[in-house]
Write a protein that binds this DNA or RNA. Structure first.
Length: 908
RNA sequence: GCGCCUAUGGCGGAAUUGGUAGACGCGCUACCUUGAGGUGGUAGUCUCGAAAGAGGUAGAGGUUCGAGUCCUCUUAGGCGCACCA
């Protein structure tokens, strides 16, 4: 396609201008604001400005990318463009905008490359960051690059390690319902020796060591968090995952389950995302019930959400890993039980879920007594009962639980009815909904809810059980057997009796750098790669370093806080900066025309793939930091929007194997950054999944060409085009300057019609930006351009505000035309010019055309003066020629007049 | 299996939230312009019909003067959870 306008010349030009001027730099409270900076000029500031003198903040954040070797994908700039448009718009509205970018640069690909080639991951990572930076900068985003961070930078991960130590040195106090320094922990009686006290402390820390079975992925050579395992396979790569007991670091996120759940109600996230977090946290209310063993001292505790069905419990099931199994199994069943336990242990998670259809299990030979009716019921083990949920044991109610029903049928266990469905035609077998209690002694006749309350009270009274809340959420497995991650600031020592214990490094030892290695593979014995660095691991006093590293999520848990104050060397973030950018006592809802600051990040945009990973982990860390008094809000991200996926032109997910990947670099060469940005926003609603269409880029590119020609003199542009080929590249800038404005641009007073077109556009664009409807905002600007193309003269007073509307979307062309429009004068800084206001009065017409409906069908139109009375409108409507034929000879039953909208006549 | 969401021209999508369905763009058609090509401009483009008109928002019912929008059922697609007791 022919070049519509010289974007190749002016796009780099304006990018350099913004970089040189530091146009989009944000200033922290107390920081010196240069008097010449456009932000200072706009707000009349200079010198060291206190937080109270700064305009209200607007913190708008993108999920920072992992800088992969493949470079930027068209999906990345989708969210970045949306946030950039809003950042530029809020800046024009007078907000103090913080819009940063950085790199989530620890990660597996660079390490895998290192294993293969021996090249240090830092080298690969830095090269990828350079490429990503070039690509992102070529799109003209208004980031404050002075605040760039990389999680792999020692000045950054020093504070990641520091925050880990805060977590390590804290415990969750149930009495105050918050995290507190470990020093506030009280010791139980008998905790006298230092060894005992240490053991007690270590068992309460928010970061603790556990020996439990974990998700081990041999292919990746590391353990994974529950959140990183999908259907028994690793989220990255799709490799099988096995359960294996290992000594691992865990973070006690479960202590925050209730807060993480409840505080969802205080933030403005999409319902679907909140639902995903709720599902993951998985709160369920029920009761714990103790079953006494028959002929054995042991008690078995179970968790149930349906205590009302206790009379229907005809057997019990323990998970194969349950600690009582060995103790209670009778001699005759010992071999069978042992065999089953081994069978269950060797099954991968994948096999466990895939084979879920067919129940399996073994009788232990032991019996328990049902506490409500004294019946002797058999105790089985089966892998459909999970060791890690509830108490690892259940009472089975086959009459009213699908899983128990299947199991009972397979093993011929008794099935009794204890709930009657409300609809008598429904089969009670396998009926799992609420109904009425039957065959349940003192519960008979009660609706399910009431029966639950009654039985729970009864259990509590008899000291046989109590009301309990359970969560699916598990503690966060926080260590990885990797090289390219933050080392733990932890060392291991032995006490007097030779037992290993861990100890935190002092803050002065941070950052703890990973050692240099020649081989990045794990060791032959399966230890993490860091174990190869013998000199690093073994300290002179005999202590050894922790050789696991933190997961990639660690760095992204708090990067939004580091942006507030990237250079701070004395804290992870300076308190004043934190409270200015994050804290807010203002109304938590942001709306034009007087937008107020919101608590935390005002707007966070990113993909939905982080719904239960990054977004849950970051909320957790933030809550710990909040409890410890390091941050001023309980939630990090006030409003969150997920951008939709961009598919290939074939409607399939973009992938190398399908060959449908669109590289932004290629689009930029042909159409430029402005057209690329505009197209990404014009495709459809930000949140929707939508396919790429290259011809669509050409469409918005043509639109920008029409904008260009509204302003530029045709003859001087033809001259420019012809001189280009004949002139050396370094003179092209001068040629660009020589392009003249069109003679159609005048200082004449705009017509009423021109004002109406402009103000309709201002209104639409402003309102659409407020609700993030970028596609319709662009369409409104297209309407304006279509109108303005037909105008013989174009008043500057109309065309100038139009450029301001266009500027957030297509900033380069807007700057270039803005500069031409103000040639010879000192041009105001486009990005900081006050956003145009619209005048509703200019949109009102003297007469209205109203549709006339008869019995709901459109039959004609009438022209009525504005403000006409209902009687007048009725008269005109009845006189409407086209409507007449449907009315005449019939009785008019009803007249409906929707003011300024339509007239509807109902006839018999 | 359970939960949530979506369904509008050949395509991407609009529709003031119950009030003129299809804005805007792509594609297509015709004409004009430019040295042909591409570019640029103008007009047209839901279906049937010469017209008047009729029909039309996945399908079937319902509420209403009036339904893409609200309610019920069905179908299709997407996302999430999935032996969580």
């Amino acid at each position: 396609m022919r070049r519509q306008y010289p974007f190749d010349l002016f796009e780099p030009k304006w990018q350099q201008h913004w970089a040189a001027e530091e146009t989009f730099r944000a200033f922290n409270p107390g920081e010196a604001v240069p008097a010449a900076h456009p932000f200072a000029v706009r707000h009349g500031l200079s010198g060291n400005v206190a937080a109270t003198q700064l305009p209200p903040k607007f913190y708008i954040l993108d999920m920072f990318p992992y800088p992969s070797g493949a470079g930027l994908h068209v999906g990345h700039p989708e969210g970045y463009t949306a946030t950039d448009i809003l950042a530029r718009w809020r800046r024009a509205q007078g907000r103090h905008v913080l819009h940063p970018m950085g790199w989530d640069s620890f990660g597996l690909p660079a390490e895998q490359y290192a294993v293969k080639t021996g090249q240090h991951p830092r080298v690969t990572t830095e090269a990828n960051i350079t490429n990503f930076t070039r690509q992102i900068k070529s799109l003209g985003f208004s980031y404050d690059w002075s605040r760039e961070v990389a999680t792999t930078d020692p000045d950054y991960f020093r504070w990641t390690q520091w925050i880990f130590l805060q977590i390590y040195n804290s415990w969750f106090n149930p009495a105050t319902n918050r995290a507190e320094p470990i020093s506030t922990l009280a010791y139980p009686d008998g905790c006298d020796s230092e060894e005992q006290r240490r053991a007690h402390r270590d068992s309460k820390r928010l970061a603790f060591v556990s020996e439990a079975p974990v998700n081990w992925c041999p292919e990746l050579g590391t353990v994974l968090a529950n959140e990183e395992v999908i259907d028994g396979k690793s989220e990255v790569g799709g490799f099988p995952v096995f359960r294996k007991p290992m000594r691992q670091w865990m973070l006690r996120i479960t202590a925050f389950a209730e807060k993480l759940l409840a505080d969802l109600d205080t933030i403005d996230w999409s319902d679907s995302l909140k639902e995903m977090q709720r599902n993951w946290i998985g709160r369920s209310e029920g009761a714990e019930v103790d079953f006494q063993m028959d002929g054995h001292a042991a008690k078995i505790r179970v968790f149930t959400t349906r205590p009302d069905t206790l009379f229907g419990a005809t057997y019990m099931v323990l998970s194969p890993e349950h600690k009582l199994v060995g103790e209670i199994t009778t001699a005759g069943q010992r071999d069978a039980v042992k065999q089953y336990q081994e069978f269950a242990a060797t099954r991968s998670d994948l096999e466990r879920t895939e084979l879920a259809k067919e129940k399996s299990g073994v009788f232990t030979g032991a019996h328990a007594i049902n506490p409500v009716n004294g019946e002797k019921i058999p105790i089985w083990i089966a892998d459909y009962v999970l060791a890690t949920y509830g108490t690892g044991a259940i009472m089975a109610v086959p009459g009213h639980d699908t899983r128990d029903f299947e199991f009972a049928q397979k093993f011929n266990l008794p099935i009794v009815q204890v709930v009657a469905p409300l609809d008598s035609k429904t089969d009670w077998q396998g009926f799992i909904d609420d109904g009425t209690a039957v065959n349940s002694g003192f519960l008979d006749g009660m609706p399910t809810i009431e029966a639950q309350k009654k039985i729970t009270a009864w259990l509590e009274e008899k000291n046989l059980g109590k009301k309990t809340i359970n969560y699916k959420l598990r503690d966060w497995l926080f260590s990885r057997q990797r090289y390219w991650g933050e080392p733990f600031p932890i060392i291991w020592k032995r006490d007097a009796s030779g037992n290993l214990y861990h100890e935190a490094l002092p803050e002065s030892a941070l950052p703890l750098l990973p050692p240099a290695l020649e081989d990045y593979k794990p060791t032959a014995t399966g230890e993490p790669p860091l174990a190869r660095a013998k000199e690093w691991v073994n300290l002179p006093d005999g202590a050894v370093r922790e050789t696991n590293t933190m997961p990639q999520w660690a760095g992204s848990c708090w990067y939004y806080l580091r942006y507030l104050d990237t250079k701070c060397g004395t804290a992870f973030v300076n308190k004043d900066a934190e409270s200015y950018w994050m804290g807010s006592t203002l109304s938590p809802i942001s709306h034009s025309p007087s937008p107020k600051s919101t608590p935390g990040v005002d707007l966070y945009v990113g993909g939905t793939e982080h719904a239960v990973l990054h977004l849950l982990y970051a909320r957790f860390w933030h809550k710990v930091l909040f409890d410890l008094g390091h941050v001023s809000t309980a939630e990090p991200f006030y409003k969150l929007v997920n951008q939709g996926l961009i598919l290939g032109a074939d409607g399939q997910k973009m992938s190398k194997s399908r060959g449908n990947v669109v590289n932004p670099d290629d689009v930029l060469v042909e159409y430029g950054a402005d057209a690329f940005r505009l197209y990404e926003m014009f495709m459809g609603p930000l949140q929707d999944t939508k396919p790429w269409n290259t011809q669509g880029v050409a469409g918005v590119y043509k639109f920008l060409g029409r904008v260009w020609r509204l302003f530029v003199d045709e003859a001087s542009e033809t001259e420019f085009e012809q001189s280009l080929t004949a002139t050396s590249a370094e003179k092209h800038g001068a040629l660009l300057e020589a392009i003249k404005l069109s003679a159609t641009l005048t200082d004449a007073e705009p017509t009423k019609e021109q004002l109406k077109v402009l103000h309709a556009c201002i209104k639409k664009v402003t309102e659409d930006l407020d609700s993030m409807r970028f596609n319709t905002a662009i369409s409104a600007m297209m309407v304006f351009v279509n109108e303005a193309t037909a105008w013989k003269t174009r008043p500057r007073s109309v065309m100038r505000p139009f450029l301001q509307l266009l500027a957030p979307f297509a900033p380069h062309i807007a700057e270039e035309l803005w500069a031409k429009l103000h040639a010879g004068q000192s041009a105001p800084s486009l990005g900081y010019e006050p956003w145009p206001a619209f005048d509703e009065a200019l949109l009102i017409e003297d007469t209205l055309e109203l549709p006339v409906q008869v019995n709901g069908k459109l039959r004609g139109h009438i022209i009525v003066p504005r403000g006409a009375s209902n009687a007048e409108i009725e008269r005109l409507a009845l006189a409407c020629e086209r409507a007449q034929q449907f009315i005449s000879g019939k009785e008019v039953k009803k007249f409906i007049i929707v003011p300024n909208r339509l007239v509807s006549i109902a006839v018999a």
